[in-house]
Write a protein that binds this DNA or RNA. Sequence first.
DNA 1: AAGAATTTTGAACAATTGTACAGTACTATA
DNA 2: TATAGTACTGTACAATTGTTCAAAATTCTT
Lengths: 212, 212
Amino acid sequence: MKKNNNIFDVNKQNSDKKQLFIDAAICSLGNHGYKGTTVRQIAKYAGVAPGLLTHYFKGKEVLIAESYKYLAKQFLDDFQTKIGEHETDPVKTLQLFFQNFFEPDNMGADYLRVWLAFWTLTLTEPHLRNTHKEIHNQYISSIENMLLDAFTANNIDITDKDPRSLAIGIHALLDGLWLECCLDPDAFSQSINLEIIYNFAQSTTGLNIKPT
Amino acid sequence: MKKNNNIFDVNKQNSDKKQLFIDAAICSLGNHGYKGTTVRQIAKYAGVAPGLLTHYFKGKEVLIAESYKYLAKQFLDDFQTKIGEHETDPVKTLQLFFQNFFEPDNMGADYLRVWLAFWTLTLTEPHLRNTHKEIHNQYISSIENMLLDAFTANNIDITDKDPRSLAIGIHALLDGLWLECCLDPDAFSQSINLEIIYNFAQSTTGLNIKPT
DNA sequence: AAGAATTTTGAACAATTGTACAGTACTATA
DNA sequence: TATAGTACTGTACAATTGTTCAAAATTCTT
């Protein structure tokens, strides 16, 4: 879900200059964090003079906010696309979703740096707070829908279940594991994380999620 | 666990000047985030001239690193103390631990701002990486021990269980819920969070954790 | 090809940053 | 009270920040 080709690579020939700056900003956030992401650093990644930034964005903070929206939306779109591709078996969809979460491409210090910067902004800028709220809701709903599909496909009675709470829990567990894994990559592995999430999801939902 | 009286209040009469600066730094991080935490701002909270900082610490970054270690250690100590107080019933200990995690005092944007700054540092400074690793290990071990106590007290067979993985999962779930709750306080409540963690912990461990 | 419009540059700017340090205030010892 | 030593102040400074803007380069229009 957190797949993004532009964190390390910036296509300097991009004719869409706004997008070029967004890519460069994300790249800089990933490599140098919020503190190291200066106008001059962004410009360097974009292969452009520093002064050009204000020609396309009102200011540096605005650019970073736009980058946030772009990245969050892109992740969600990727995720929705992947879901669409494996509509056949709902349980397999869940498995793929979990696996995708812990792909090495979607982890690491670089990614966490970007999200730390964005979360910091979320706490400050009121309009970004709404963006976060929106994105988060869509995530939860997606997981909830996957669960509902899986329940009906396996003829599981849901009268005593609360799919939304289950979705919130699963999402929180994924987030927590992802965070700790980025902070200390040595202590975690994709297989261990998957084992944990499979066990949790299986025993809370009653679905037979764990692959054989 | 995240209880800290010095996030908003700084005792300017503190004779231990090093601790005064640490309190002031945490206070500033909570109120203004990493970007807004300047030497002058810290000095203002400490009620002291800016130049005094370098007299007690080698530099600003060193002070923030020290604050990290102090806060992380304090949280763990608080947690250990609370465990000691309720040694009688292991299951009740777990309940208290969960409840304490979602106390309003331990949540909110101010607290998240502090941890975002610390996590950012963890990604940069190698020696803080070890600090994080150490603290995290102690957290997991504490939860694991609580689980083991609860298993033996309730005569539950653990041959088919992996207590450490369960502890990692529970910790990640707590972290994830805490994070999302700080980012969007409107969408969460203490009772919902507890309901979720109770359900997860109960169905994964087999313990009768949920309070009646 | 010529002129208008736009894009891009890069130096200059005021503001803010962390740190250094000479000087002042304080405290303890004699 | 006089002296030594520490605690503390507040200015000063070099470095870096985001932003501005006149000039240059480029592209578009006619």
